[in-house]
């Protein structure tokens, strides 16, 4: 029973997260960077210091000594503690109309979220994915923790 649940969850996660990356659009910018923080983009890994742009499809990783904070273009605040992996699956935002859509995955570690203008205007357009669930946001602040060795 548990086995079946887990496998279904795994398949579901793969199908949700496996969509091809969109053309790289800037989603936000790194504002806080402590210890080891890196971005994986198109197979390359780079250090992610303060001022580094964060693009759609980026994988943001913190080391055992690392933590990172970023602000998305719609004023969403995200910050992750040590040993975390965060993926920007989707981010589209029109500054003038405040219409947009976003999907982020926390694969492991800890994440704090203060939702922004997209969640305020169209809450149904904002999703946070964990390995086994999807979180919908109704204009709010929350924290997520994912324990375990999951990486993909």
């Amino acid at each position: 029973m548990i086995k079946t649940h887990c496998m279904v969850a795994g398949l579901l996660a793969t199908s949700i997260l496996g969509f091809p990356a969109q053309a790289a659009e800037q989603a936000g910018m790194i504002k806080v960077s402590k210890g080891t923080v890196s971005i994986e983009r198109e197979g390359q890994r780079m250090a992610a210091g303060v001022g580094t742009p964060v693009m759609v499809a980026d994988r943001l990783r913190t080391g055992a000594d690392g933590s990172v904070g970023l602000t998305l273009r719609d004023n969403t605040l995200l910050s992750a503690g040590p040993n975390s992996l965060l993926v920007v699956d989707k981010f589209v935002y029109d500054n003038a109309t405040q219409d947009g859509r976003m999907a982020l995955s926390i694969r492991k570690g800890t994440l704090s979220v203060a939702s922004g203008k997209i969640a305020k205007r169209t809450p149904e357009s904002v999703d946070f994915h964990t390995p086994t669930s999807i979180l919908g946001v109704r204009g709010t602040e929350f924290v997520i923790e994912v324990e375990g060795d999951g990486d993909e």
Binding site: I2, K3, H5, C6, M7, A9, G10, A13, K108, S112, A114, T130, P131, T132, S133, L135, T140, E141, F142, V143, I144, E145, V146, E147, G148, D149, G150
Partner: peptide, 16 residues
């Protein structure tokens, strides 16, 4: 299987 079934926690916070 345990990896796919990582334990997770969500806590709603009062907003600023």
């Amino acid at each position: 299987l345990l990896g796919a079934c990582a334990s997770e926690r969500v806590v709603l916070l009062p907003a600023a």
